[in-house]
């Protein structure tokens, strides 16, 4: 009798536990919460260090930021930072690949555009990554507000798309012209190739272990 009661209790408990995976529609609540929470503060104007103060101030700022970013990097990767002083786009790319739950994923460019638009207008939160700023991997002069990030599953591999705000986010170094007429910057400062594109004060960085032409197709196709 006691055994039967135990079996009944376990079976009831097991069936109740399945309610924890019951699908629920969160879209309306997500929108309501985005409307109800205080809006994200406007990004601060970014002053070029060389124009904003003396060299002592620049050096002090560099030391402070290096300390903060180094601590963040250590917290994420568990190893000592190697010359990085902010989360760079290639670190973010690696992080999103290694933490699938943190990243938005798109199968097509159309899906990617919807996810990008939602992040840019604030109706979707940024991916769960450390901090809200990001640095380009070819500069050492500051970090910039991250505005959107996601992964696109391309036939040849995963591609990360990162949108950051800041006119000086990247140096135009190796300009390439896409067939569509869009001007892109090709970067090869890390092992992972990347293609960047600038519109007003926004930059998109598209990177991944795929052909550069594929990266260029993505970078030239998306709107931001």
């Amino acid at each position: 009798m006691a055994e039967h009661q135990k079996q009944l209790d376990q079976a009831t408990q097991g069936r109740l536990a399945k309610l924890a995976t019951m699908p629920v529609d969160m879209s309306r609540l997500e929108k309501k919460m985005a409307d109800a929470l205080p809006p994200r503060s406007a990004p601060k104007p970014l002053a070029h260090p060389a124009r904003s103060g003396g060299w002592q101030r620049i050096a002090a700022m560099f030391v402070l930021m290096a300390g903060i970013a180094g601590a963040s990097y250590f917290a994420i990767f568990g190893v000592a930072p190697q010359g990085a002083y902010a989360m760079t786009v290639d670190q973010l790319h690696t992080y999103l690949l290694e933490h699938p739950d943190s990243a938005y994923r798109a199968q097509t460019l159309q899906q990617a555009q919807v996810l990008l638009d939602a992040q840019l207008d604030g109706s979707k939160p940024l991916p769960t990554v450390d901090g809200t700023n990001v640095a380009s991997c070819c500069l050492v002069q500051g970090d910039f507000p991250l505005r959107a990030a996601l992964l696109i599953e391309r036939p040849t591999g995963s591609v990360t798309v990162i949108v950051a705000q800041g006119k000086d986010f990247a140096h135009p170094t190796e300009a390439i012209q896409h067939a569509s007429g869009v001007e892109l910057q090709s970067h090869s400062h890390t092992d992972t190739p990347m293609v960047m594109r600038n519109v007003d004060d926004l930059w998109v960085c598209v990177m991944g272990d795929v052909d550069e032409s594929d990266l260029a197709d993505v970078a030239s196709s998306i709107r931001f």
Partner: peptide
Amino acid sequence: MKYSPTDSHPEDARRNRFYAE
């Protein structure tokens, strides 16, 4: 996720922590 001490605005830090945790 950890929320970063580099978040310049307290409300942004709170918001980031909310969405992360």
